[in-house]
Simulated scan of single mutants.
Amino acid sequence: MQTYHAGSRAVQDRAGVRDLADHVGQIIGQGIKPVAAAFLELQPLLILGAADPTTDRVWASPLTGPPGFVRATGPHQISVTGGTRPPDPLTPALTDARDLPVGTIALDPRTRRRMRVDGRLRSTARGFAIEAERVFSNCPKYIQRRESYETVADRVPAAARRGRELTSAQAEFIAAADTFFLATVHEHGADASHRGGNSGFVQAVSSRELTWPDYPGNAMFLSLGNLLADPRAGLLFLDWTTGTTLQLTGEARTEFDEEGERRVRFTLTEVVECAAAIPLRWSAPEYSPANPHPGR
């Protein structure tokens, strides 16, 4: 798979970072190295992004399990034991899947490390396997440190609450968030990425529209490049204490101002809220020193 498609190239050129992107892009490989395999086996959480082939909607979904539920089973493959829970909107797409383009990100708040594996998913008897096409790690920028977590064994997911607009409580949930995950797609695959900042960095400006600043990152512009080529997107917000999830699907576009600053505007198609969706309870966050003030 090529490192960058035309969408990413267009954003890189507008930002004037094509040469830097070419240098940084050398981190992207197809193989899962031993250090990456060891990292994956320590994680209790994996975020998966994909488009549901039936509805064409893009979602970002959380997968959880005891460490080892995600593991490398070869230099180009990872396996996941279990899957999404029934209220999750991606569950139908992952059932009996064959060659489904997916993007995944494993983020460890304890160490501020993150790793992405994009590829093709197929269902297995115990969960699913992903044939890796792109494997790479990102810097710790904008990741909030959470020192520890516990698994709440008796936490039971509530019935999903679906809607086409945000409630006032959901808008407050978003405004309080210091982290969310972004799923995007392109002609040849899918990607899942992380966005972080101090609480208030992402805002619901109406019941159907969100906006957030695109902080300086690794200059690859994989997500923004995908959105330029295909505006479909999925957002996942987590309550790191209660396990409640808020999943949004819709379309997003990037706005550039005269100073070259970027802001992403997301228009909602559907929202799915599920209380106690995941069994993890994390400690309080220590904000990343890289986080700008939300007003900037």
Results as ranks from 00 to 15, higher is better:
94 L>K: 05
83 G>T: 12
108 D>F: 00
105 I>V: 15
99 D>K: 13
76 H>E: 14
76 H>S: 13
88 D>F: 11
123 S>C: 01
89 P>H: 11
65 G>R: 09
116 R>K: 12
68 G>R: 07
119 G>S: 05
100 L>D: 11
59 W>V: 11
89 P>A: 11
77 Q>M: 13
116 R>N: 02
94 L>A: 07
81 T>F: 03
59 W>Q: 14
73 T>S: 14
121 L>S: 04
98 R>W: 12
85 R>D: 07
87 P>G: 04
71 R>Q: 15
121 L>P: 02
76 H>G: 15
94 L>Y: 05
96 D>A: 15
103 G>L: 05
69 F>I: 06
102 V>R: 03
102 V>G: 09
73 T>Y: 05
108 D>H: 06
104 T>W: 06
118 D>C: 12
118 D>R: 04
81 T>A: 14
81 T>K: 10
94 L>R: 06
118 D>I: 00
108 D>V: 03
81 T>E: 13
115 M>N: 00
74 G>S: 14
87 P>R: 03
122 R>A: 14
89 P>R: 10
93 A>T: 08
85 R>A: 13
108 D>E: 10
108 D>P: 03
90 L>F: 07
94 L>W: 07
126 R>A: 14
91 T>E: 13
60 A>P: 10
123 S>I: 01
89 P>K: 10
122 R>M: 04
98 R>P: 00
75 P>T: 11
120 R>V: 00
86 P>A: 05
91 T>I: 02
103 G>Q: 06
67 P>T: 09
111 T>H: 09
82 G>L: 02
124 T>S: 14
115 M>Q: 14
126 R>I: 12
116 R>L: 04
108 D>S: 11
67 P>H: 08
65 G>M: 09
108 D>N: 13
103 G>A: 05
119 G>L: 05
80 V>C: 07
92 P>N: 09
58 V>H: 07
114 R>S: 03
78 I>K: 08
97 A>I: 11
110 R>P: 00
58 V>K: 08
96 D>I: 01
102 V>M: 08
75 P>Y: 02
99 D>W: 09
78 I>Q: 07
90 L>C: 06
77 Q>N: 09
83 G>C: 08
113 R>D: 05
101 P>D: 08
96 D>V: 00
94 L>T: 09
100 L>Y: 12
71 R>D: 10
128 F>A: 02
120 R>P: 01
